[in-house]
Nucleic acid binder design. Structure first.
Lengths: 182, 182
DNA sequence: TAGTACATGTAAACAGTTACATGATTAT
DNA sequence: ATAATCATGTAACTGTTTACATGTACTA
């Protein structure tokens, strides 16, 4: 599973389940997301496998925290995962499934509006990612440099999708006009 | 769930589970994939919900087929799904998780090779999608037109990823050279 | 006093994968 | 003979989501 290894990777520094959830939500993790209900049991499982250790820690407000630390075994498990080469997984893009079959609605205006909404979504998310400023590659350590190129993936992906939306809107509009005056 | 609705959409014309699996594998379905072990029970479930009907049909070779047909209720369920607007789902890109944490291996050559492998993958898949020739938009019916713009998404996404790989390889190489001669 | 952020967890349901079982037909 | 393709299905497992349960401390 990937979540196991992502948690192992995120635990380069000790953290609690709650901390890790925030890391997923902070958008730098545009490539994966996880709920607390999945994170807590996964951390426990990793601890029983000896890849993490945990100790309770006080908290300023609210209940006590449980902070997890990666073990040597955890680190070598992580390195093994990294050495496998790129894991491609499966793409799941429900909006493309919808778009491909939107001809069933028999309404090009509906298709046009659908793509307008998609464009809006990609543009907003692209702006969100671009706002994460990481500075000049020359001043970075290796961790920051790897974060930078990963973030650039997200930004260029959004730009390419917006461009595809614009191109598609043109094509839909042309088709619409051809239907009006046949 | 999306698979329910994708199967409903694919059943614009009657087909068997086996036929539908081939449609997923034919790459035009670059946005979703499913195994037979998931397709067969899902079709049964859709039939008990009254969204599909099935009848057995002979086969030239091998055991008899079971061909599913969409009902009126099935079509309106589909239209309801399409009318919801774009469903964004969650991105799961394990290779980006690996790349962001590949600094742990402390080896820029490993990072470089990783991106070379990614580039190879995206380029190959992009060529595979480009080979699906659909012809001129003006001669198409609405179904083919929607298939075209969906396919163009896949092609431009691959091109953008290859461009990102090339840009990243440059940046990694620059960093490598800076480390050699500090 | 109501809501939000902190903080951890469990239970049940749903989604998806891997492995297995069966058996016919066609090509090598 | 052996493998590939056709064709359908089940069982066990793994992964993910939604809903629930608990309780503190601070802010509006």
């Amino acid at each position: 599973m990937s979540l196991d290894h992502i948690l192992l990777a995120l635990l380069a520094k000790p953290a609690s389940g709650y901390d890790l959830k925030k890391e997923f939500d902070q958008g730098a993790r545009h490539y994966w997301a996880a709920e607390l209900a999945q994170i807590y049991p996964t951390l426990k499982k990793l601890e029983t496998r000896g890849l993490l250790t945990s100790n309770p820690a006080g908290s300023d407000k609210g209940p006590p925290r449980r902070v997890y630390t990666r073990t040597k075994a955890g680190r070598s498990e992580l390195l093994g995962w990294l050495k496998q080469g790129p894991l491609m997984g499966k793409q799941r893009l429900p909006y493309l499934a919808q778009l491909e079959h939107l001809y069933e609605a028999d309404d090009l205006d509906a298709t046009y509006n659908f793509v307008v909404q998609l464009r809006q979504h990609f543009a907003t998310f692209g702006r969100f990612l671009s706002d994460v400023q990481l500075g000049d590659p020359e001043d970075m350590n290796d961790a920051q440099f790897h974060e930078l190129i990963t973030l650039q993936y997200g930004i260029t992906a959004c730009q390419a999708r917006v461009a595809w939306c614009d191109e598609s809107l043109d094509q839909i509009d042309n088709r619409r006009k051809r239907k009006e005056t046949p």
